[in-house]
Simulated assay, not measured.
Amino acid sequence: MTTYSVIIILTMIALIVGAMLGYASIKLKVEADPIVEKIDTILPQSQCGQCGYPGCKPYAEAVANGDDITKCVPGGQPLIIKIADLMGVEPPEMDGEAAPEEMVAFIDENMCIGCTKCIQACPVDAIIGTNKAMHTIIPDLCTGCELCVAPCPTDCIKMIKSKQAIKNKPRKFDENLIIPIINISDNPTEFHNEK
């Protein structure tokens, strides 16, 4: 048997097996539950595990199969209402319990050593900073999953009760850092004449 005939035989076998696999993938395709996909879409995708499941997709599957819709801590009450609307059920009563307040992480910048462990732990990229430099939280992105708290070696990350606490915090800035805006016209000679 020549080399060419071996190549032709192997090519024919590969084509036949490929055709069989293609046919099987179409014929035996498992349809995903559309309600699971819709629930997963509205979940915060922080993969924090506070619901008791390893991620948002397994929790979406559990909710579609009848599990409690109030387990997503980062989503809070607005998410519970969205899931209830999607499922066509009434949002559950809190039975006299106050709804959990929305929490966000806060870094005590005086204690931060710039180790970047919190950045690696954050699933939504809400922490900015670089190695050996101070880090800070972007409160609008923080879901309150608390995954950044445990890896911090200096315990400089705390959870605070509201995004408003950070948004309303007065910002201090150095006025010497403001760069003045100079209007330069198309004619450079006019600019030189002003001097």
Rank of each mutant, 00 (worst) to 15 (best):
4 Y>K: 15
5 S>Q: 15
6 V>A: 13
7 I>V: 15
8 I>D: 13
8 I>V: 14
9 I>P: 03
10 L>M: 09
10 L>Q: 04
12 M>P: 02
16 I>H: 02
18 G>H: 07
24 A>S: 13
25 S>W: 07
28 L>K: 10
29 K>W: 08
30 V>D: 04
30 V>A: 12
30 V>C: 07
32 A>D: 08
33 D>F: 02
33 D>K: 04
33 D>P: 01
35 I>P: 00
39 I>V: 11
40 D>S: 13
42 I>Y: 00
44 P>H: 05
44 P>Y: 03
46 S>V: 06
46 S>R: 00
47 Q>R: 05
47 Q>K: 11
48 C>M: 06
52 G>W: 06
53 Y>V: 01
54 P>H: 11
54 P>D: 11
56 C>Y: 00
57 K>L: 14
58 P>H: 09
59 Y>E: 03
61 E>G: 06
61 E>M: 09
65 N>I: 01
67 D>W: 03
67 D>P: 00
68 D>K: 14
69 I>C: 04
70 T>A: 04
72 C>D: 01
73 V>S: 04
75 G>S: 09
76 G>T: 01
76 G>I: 08
77 Q>T: 07
78 P>F: 05
80 I>F: 03
80 I>P: 00
82 K>V: 08
82 K>Y: 04
84 A>E: 08
87 M>C: 10
88 G>C: 11
89 V>F: 06
90 E>Q: 14
90 E>K: 15
90 E>G: 06
95 D>Y: 09
96 G>W: 06
98 A>M: 12
102 E>Q: 11
103 M>L: 12
104 V>W: 01
104 V>F: 01
105 A>E: 02
108 D>T: 05
109 E>K: 15
113 I>G: 06
115 C>G: 08
117 K>Y: 14
118 C>D: 01
119 I>D: 01
122 C>H: 00
123 P>S: 07
125 D>I: 02
126 A>H: 04
126 A>T: 00
129 G>Q: 05
132 K>Y: 11
132 K>M: 13
132 K>A: 14
134 M>A: 13
134 M>R: 10
135 H>E: 07
136 T>I: 09
137 I>M: 06
138 I>K: 03
140 D>Q: 08
143 T>W: 00
144 G>C: 02
148 C>T: 02
151 P>W: 05
155 D>G: 05
155 D>H: 07
158 K>D: 09
158 K>G: 04
160 I>A: 03
162 S>C: 05
165 A>D: 12
165 A>T: 04
167 K>F: 14
171 R>H: 09
172 K>F: 12
172 K>D: 11
177 L>N: 13
177 L>R: 12
180 P>T: 13
181 I>R: 12
181 I>M: 14
182 I>K: 13
186 D>R: 11
189 T>K: 14
189 T>L: 15
193 N>E: 15
193 N>D: 14
194 E>M: 15
195 K>S: 10
